[in-house]
Nucleic acid binder design. Sequence first.
DNA 1: GGTACCGCACTGGTCAGACCAGTTTTTAAA
DNA 2: TTTAAAAACTGGTCTGACCAGTGCGGTACC
Lengths: 252, 252
Amino acid sequence: MAISQEISYRLERMILDGGLAPEQKIPSERQLAERLRVSRSVIREALHELQGRGVIETRHGKGSFVSSMVPGSGDISTQGPLMHLFEGHPRTLYDLLEVREQLEGQAAFLAAQRATSLDRHRIAKAFRALEETDPLSNARPDHGFHQAIVEASHNPILVHVLNSLKNMMLMTVQASVANLNPRAEMRKKIVLQHRQLYEAVISGRPASAQKVAMAHVRFVSKAMRDMEKEGSTLIRVPIEQEGQNSHQGTRD
Amino acid sequence: MAISQEISYRLERMILDGGLAPEQKIPSERQLAERLRVSRSVIREALHELQGRGVIETRHGKGSFVSSMVPGSGDISTQGPLMHLFEGHPRTLYDLLEVREQLEGQAAFLAAQRATSLDRHRIAKAFRALEETDPLSNARPDHGFHQAIVEASHNPILVHVLNSLKNMMLMTVQASVANLNPRAEMRKKIVLQHRQLYEAVISGRPASAQKVAMAHVRFVSKAMRDMEKEGSTLIRVPIEQEGQNSHQGTRD
DNA sequence: GGTACCGCACTGGTCAGACCAGTTTTTAAA
DNA sequence: TTTAAAAACTGGTCTGACCAGTGCGGTACC
């Protein structure tokens, strides 16, 4: 195997296993070249490979940095050839939601079944934050609540797949809660759904939790569909990778 | 933006949009350098970037080739940081199967609901091939049958996610049908399950199809678990990207 | 005529050293 | 002390050389 490849793997292992934190700086190309006893070219090629995989980012004059990806989040599925296929197809959004309905349901089911006391504590905390926050201003609590439940499923694959789908949604449309929530009646229903989901998970009723979670996603999906039909304020933004972490929500 | 990046994007567009077929050869580095009026270095860096994203593969002495990915298959999720997290964790396999159970079920449900006459024709053809082939020698018909059903769901996201999961399974363990089928009783049950699934989808009974599909995955999962418990022949292979397309199955 | 082999003309892989272009730090002048 | 120039970093590009696999064609031998 080519040296540049070996080095790219070695660096990746160091970053991923060795616990190099996101945003952390990587030694300069010249340093790496000297330390690993290879020419600067192979270092550069290895770094470009990692760049292609989204493991690092490089800034002219500053250096290379470990990509900031929230554990298990920003990775994969939002990059690569795939996205090109979906770009601009509105129907994709509903395909996404169709799959999410199923998986969020499963996550809720498993969470109700497997949540440890620590999980329950986290979920409860997220739920309180959700109730105390003005939903119009901030979607993060909503996101945190669902995230806590998904993680309580104790299935890393499920966590990962749902994160990927969520990222794809972010890239397809930017329909923040602000778009969805203004209508009072709708808002009320969502709050009710959240409460039902919370209680089902915490009190360990898997079947019930699953049902509620699925209904929740379906409700959101239908709401979006209706809004689009009315030709209203659903905002479509072109797909554009931007470095900033303007993490305003976009969820339920 | 750096020239090498621009070029990597340009090449990617050419490959993806321009319909460069998989396995097709890309001009040599020296040719590209001359044609695009840049040094060979930036070409190499751009190519390494595409390599990192899995768009191309490079063979010493031969050239660079468009990655062979069956439309929507080989991409993503099998590469990138993710895999390293799961590497070597046997539990991961069952996490995968847990998620697949849900999604295969949904796929069967939707297929039974949405399959066009063309879909039905394809499914029937795959099913006949499945029955006529010696399952011990070849897993492809099995794969083709499930694939046909998944595609009949008419949800590209679902197709993509299931393909990704399948690829992850391929990388985690190589437990081919040959491992699973030798036992006559087991084989019989699987044949029965396939027939039930086939009939439910073809005759348009979504709920039934979903139930059968889920049971099928769960059965396979349980069988694997049992075999592993007995310390038997489940073969674990280290993750190793190989160029050859030795596509022996590893599925149900 | 057929066949084995050698060599040349490709391919990508690595190296060295130079220079350009942003960024940060240090230094020297006001 | 403040400020501005300069030096010392960083990555980005270029050049030209050579090494290492691959494949093809011609030649010499059978």
